[in-house]
Design a protein around this nucleic acid. Structure first.
Length: 464
RNA sequence: GACCCUAUCGUCUAGAGGCCUAGGACAAUACCCUUUCACGGUAUGAACCGGGGUUCGAAUCCCCGUGGGGUCGCCA
């Protein structure tokens, strides 16, 4: 049997980090077993679904590199199929019309809550042998309810949580089609999972309570029941439920914030899943290792610091050309034009093992393209008369010097010898003069990347 | 409130009854490296929620309690 998994987001917002992990696991499971990964857009909530959200989900999946084998399928385009199945169920007696109005339902719910009971539909329109149904009210369009089994238990071996059993008595006859005829979530999922031949449903924890209903529905339809695996949720950095407050909840926000997709992927893979002590691995390795047995069943707290560490790691590994491109893109976003001179690739090489994210990398590159003005306080502290004298000496030597880092290093030492200063006494003022900051990578490499013309120009700015 | 899930360092986790004096990683701290700041290297501190069982033996199995989470829609 070929494994077929699916990711089925509803396009009511962006692809958030929890959804991304669900997608990653479902994708990896299919890949691991040479199966298919299907993307399905659950857009039956017409009021809240938007094309922009669909696009955001597609963009997020693409950025992460989670390619689907089939789809995307849109539930709104499958209405005829849903209506057909509803008709079949009505005919078979596994579903029935219910004329209870929303107002009546509200009253019922309120009464049950007052009694401290679990609110649920009381089955007043459920056909039963020997039972007389109420008179059909005029001018009211009925909803269609599923005739849930009255007793027994629904059980399944959850692939991550183990065996779960729910008494049918806990379940009520839920609505599968609204008064306007449109089908509801639990129904669409079941029809789709059946029609699409889904073998493993890997989804969020919040669907555990839907599972028994869906299993009952599947059985009423005479369809095979797939295997279910429910992933526990991801909590925010502060241990509370993930929400807008936490900043980067959208996957694409991580791109904006300077994260590499491979870092996010590696981080997400380790959030709730493990392979012994392995921490850093490629997606190929992840796919080869991935299994449902090693998924944690308790909620995990998101840890930005660990993500940052992974991001720094992957930036060190990334090639300079790619990083150079990121510098150009991010600088442009701030309205700064990265000219071909100095080559962004060289700047990337200079800073890649010092930064945590791509925005920092771009910040580092910034002063190479826009001559900085050191703040007065910094200038006063570092550009002393003594320092300026040394810089003047250096400027004289640099004018005719070879600009390879090796030669530059020698030139620097000549200035040291001539002025009797130590390296930091010259290098730090030089950094301030050139980059507007007292720290930088090895100064000879910085000089080499900036180039003679720019170095001389900037020195002249601070020298009298 | 009812139902369901869950509980190992601050965080992510390893752990399938003896391999556990509980391992790894992030973070923290210290030291080393250094042309500044980083990077890197080395080292250190840091946990089995509580109580009962089962067993020769429990982080691991069972029960109760407590904490955390999810769900109870004509949302998905």
């Amino acid at each position: 049997m070929t494994v077929r998994t699916r990711f089925a987001p509803s396009p009511t917002g962006y692809l958030h980090i929890g959804g991304a992990r669900t997608a990653l696991f479902a994708w990896a499971y299919a890949r691991r077993h040479q199966g298919q990964f299907i993307l399905r857009i659950e857009d039956t909530d017409v009021a809240r679904s938007t094309p922009a959200a669909v696009q955001a989900i597609l963009d997020g999946m693409q950025w992460l590199g989670l390619a689907h084998d089939e789809g995307p399928f849109y539930q709104m385009q499958r209405m005829d199929r849903y209506r057909q199945v509803i008709g079949e169920m009505l005919a078979a007696g596994t579903a029935y019309h219910c004329y209870t109005s929303k107002e009546e339902l509200d009253t019922l719910r309120a009464a049950q809550e007052a009694q401290k009971e679990k609110p649920r539909y009381d089955g007043r329109w459920r056909p039963e042998t020997g039972k007389t149904l109420p008179a059909i009210p005029a001018g009211l369009r009925p909803v269609v309810r599923f005739r849930n089994p009255a007793d027994g238990v629904v059980a399944w071996d959850d692939q991550v949580k183990g065996r779960i059993e729910i008494a049918n008595a806990e379940l009520d006859d839920f609505i599968i089609a609204r008064a306007d005829g449109t089908p509801t979530y639990n129904f669409c999922v079941v029809v789709d999972d059946r029609d699409m031949g889904i073998t493993h449903v890997i989804r969020g924890d919040d669907h555990v309570n839907n599972t028994p209903r869906q299993i009952n529905l599947l059985q009423a339809l005479g369809a095979p029941v797939p295997l279910y695996g429910h992933l526990s949720m991801i909590l925010g950095d502060d241990g509370t439920k993930l929400s807008k407050r936490h900043g980067a909840v959208s996957v694409m926000q991580y791109d904006d914030d300077g994260y590499l997709p491979e870092a996010v992927l590696n981080y997400l893979a380790r959030l709730g899943w493990s392979h012994g002590d392995e921490e850093v691995f490629s997606m190929a390795q992840f796919v080869a290792w991935f299994d449902l047995d090693h998924i944690t069943s308790s909620a995990a707290q998101f840890n930005t610091e660990k993500l940052n560490w992974l991001n720094a790691h992957y930036i060190k590994l990334a090639d300079d050309a790619r990083l150079g491109g990121e510098i150009v893109r991010r600088l442009a976003r701030e309205g700064v034009l990265a000219t071909p001179q100095p080559d962004p690739e060289l700047i990337a090489a200079l800073y890649k093992d010092r930064v945590t994210n791509l925005n920092e990398l771009a910040d580092c590159a910034h002063p190479f393209y826009v001559a900085p003005h050191p703040p007065a306080e910094m200038a006063a502290q570092h550009l002393t008369d003594l320092a300026k004298a040394a810089l003047a000496d250096l400027r004289g030597r640099l004018a005719g010097a070879d600009f390879s880092p090796e030669a530059l290093s020698k030139t620097l030492k000549e200035t040291l010898a001539a002025t009797g200063l130590k390296m930091p006494q010259v290098a730090i003022p030089l950094r301030v003069a050139l980059l507007g900051q007292p720290q930088s990578p090895a100064i000879d490499r910085v000089l080499a990347v900036l180039g003679r013309d720019e170095v001389l120009r900037r020195l002249d700015q601070v020298l009298p």
